[in-house]
Design a binder for these strands. Structure first.
Lengths: 203, 203
DNA sequence: AATTGTTTTAAACATATGTTTAATTATTGA
DNA sequence: TCAATAATTAAACATATGTTTAAAACAATT
């Protein structure tokens, strides 16, 4: 072991690579850029991570984990009502997205450019229909005589209204001539609004 | 002029390039692939379109036009009510998306990898706040005493619920274990559902 | 201080890819 | 038919980029 003052080069490379991959994707990022940005030598990227692809996979796995982990325990909490789950889910997701607004586009872009590998390798075993939330939602729609509405619709609406605004932020800010911080404030309002709208849908 | 039987090579190149750009993005597509796929010589891509970038810009402009044109006349029709506009907007968008489901991701990916150039060059002059729909929506919310809800929220919800499901189709089909045609059927149901949900939001 | 193992470096390698060139072939109009 | 213009081709060019190599610098242990 050598240095303690500045972060070990291995970590520095990874940290820089994460930022760049998330911002510009796998093909949009070069090993030389990573090395330069990390203030190290080009060969060290391969020395520590074997290949660009290995490095990428590590980072993608962590991003996915970060992205799903934060909500999976809410989805499967058997002690809370549907309403509470909705509120918590949206609240936590929007907080998460405010901190890491580029993660969804990062994941979606990589799915697009490599669907099979991505879905099979990274997302195997992720089953939405078996969550507590999904079952509660299904039961609730039955009670309310809304059998014509597939619960997937409602799940999709929650995800759509929560995630999509972050995905299209640059575009919306542009076509509405809205500064970024004003947009961010709007996003925070949605923590209360989305659960309210969804409740209207299912009642 | 030479051939009439098969489409002129220039058109063939463009047609093939469009498919590939939309599916795999700018950096994910090579001029050699385009040439091979079009059954022509590599140099002809540059012969007819000067550069890969020129070719891309043409295609992107057309895609954007295709994407916005189909709805801009609905947004600005001064003879229809808010309700009718919502219904028509969602209906037409979903039809459009069923035919070209990859266009949104295509546009969003390119914005991501090149935000400034994209927004300034391709989207200048697109102003959502000046549409008839936006004004009607604003007035409606005032009438209904919903001044605390920024009309942008509602616009965003319409776009979110309409577009997002197409963007995440591969992912959702995977985590819900749903075949693609079943998913497509769900999407068609949303033509009626989304306007209904949005009306609940604003009333 | 010498040995050993780790980290860092510069350079080279191999390949991919956008672009250009110069020559050849095909088409058109006089 | 023939000259001029357009279309096509194979090859070369220039550069970018992931990866590897071999040597040097460094750190730690004995």
């Amino acid at each position: 072991m050598k240095q303690e003052k500045d972060k070990k080069t291995e970590d520095k490379i990874k940290q820089v690579a994460r930022m760049m991959f998330i911002q510009k994707g796998f093909t949009g990022t070069t090993t030389r850029e990573i090395a330069t940005e990390a203030g190290t030598n080009l060969a060290l990227v391969n020395y520590y991570f074997r290949s660009k692809e290995q490095l990428f996979k590590q980072i993608m796995l962590e991003s996915l984990h970060e992205f799903f982990e934060s909500v999976v325990d809410i989805l499967n909490d058997s002690h809370t009502s549907l309403e509470i789950k909705l509120e918590r889910l949206v609240e936590r997701y929007i907080n998460q997205l405010n901190q890491h607004p580029d993660i969804p586009m990062f994941i979606l872009s990589e799915i697009r450019s490599n669907p099979e590998i991505f879905l099979n390798e990274f997302l195997k075993g992720t089953k939405l229909r078996q969550t507590v939330l999904f079952n509660q939602l299904t039961a609730h729609l039955q009670e309310k005589q809304k059998l014509n509405i597939n619960p997937i619709h409602i799940m999709m609406n929650v995800l759509s209204m929560t995630l999509f605004p972050f995905i299209v932020k640059p575009m919306i800010c542009h076509v509405t001539e809205m500064p970024e911080d004003e947009y961010r404030a709007l996003m925070l309002e949605r923590k209360k609004l989305i659960p309210m709208w969804v409740k209207q849908m299912v009642n």
